[in-house]
């Protein structure tokens, strides 16, 4: 146990510390509840999006396979030269219960047949279909990047909060209570000693007084 001064002042300080620690624990618990609620809300949408992503990815790879099989991979590569471009993303942040989460601003990546950079007359619809599905996949991946990052950060914050609550609940508050109890016991012990000492002194004095001859 930490060295503590068993004084009344220390006792008052420890009690104040216990009260503060318990308030902190309750606040952290409330925050954790709110974070968990938010976490599950986002997780629901993430798992929906994940399933959708898997479905789109399967379908995109199937379309790619057919396009490669029918149109030859070199024709696909040629079309890909025309569609090569960068994805511009604007990433900002927002606060969810004090947790910074990203907001990814993007224009829809999916394009129409007129904007893909090649003449649709010479490129088969199979290639277009594969392109379209991969564009949708990219859109979904970007959306997922936003929600999954938010989810990860919320998860980390929940874990950190839980560690804090546990530390308060299982280490700090019991320790403070032990210290307060120790101070209380020590003070009471000291009071009893003082009382006993006073009684003893009183008895000695009484004895002395009764032993003295009456004047």
């Amino acid at each position: 146990m930490e060295q503590v001064n068993p004084t009344r002042m220390e006792m008052i300080r420890k009690r104040a510390q216990i009260k503060l620690a318990e308030q902190g624990r309750d606040l952290l618990r409330e925050k954790m509840d709110a974070l968990i609620q938010e976490f599950f809300r986002i997780m629901e949408s993430v798992s929906d999006s994940r399933e959708r992503l898997e479905r789109i990815a399967d379908s995109a790879y199937r379309s790619l396979l057919i396009a490669q099989a029918v149109d030859d991979p070199v024709t696909l590569k040629s079309a890909s030269f025309a569609t090569k471009r960068h994805i511009a993303l604007d990433i900002r942040g927002k606060n969810v219960m004090g947790v910074p989460v990203p907001i990814i601003e993007r224009e829809r990546f999916s394009l129409t047949v007129m904007d893909r950079g090649y003449s649709p007359i010479g490129v088969s619809g199979r290639i277009d279909e594969a392109t379209e599905k991969f564009e949708s996949e990219i859109d979904l991946i970007i959306a997922l990047a936003e929600t999954e990052t938010a989810l990860r950060r919320l998860g980390e914050e929940i874990q950190m909060n839980r560690r804090r609550v546990n530390a308060l609940e299982q280490v700090l508050i019991p320790e403070l209570k032990r210290q307060a109890k120790y101070i209380k016991i020590t003070i009471e012990e000291r009071e009893r000693e003082d009382l006993y000492r006073l009684k003893k002194v009183k008895r000695i004095l009484q004895k002395k007084r009764s032993a003295q001859p009456a004047e």
């Binding site: 040629s78 030269f81 010479g122």
Partner: peptide, 16 residues
Amino acid sequence: DVQNIKTILRGKKIHA
């Protein structure tokens, strides 16, 4: 030929 010319033009545009 048309396909090949298109491929060359596309490639040259992106400096492949």
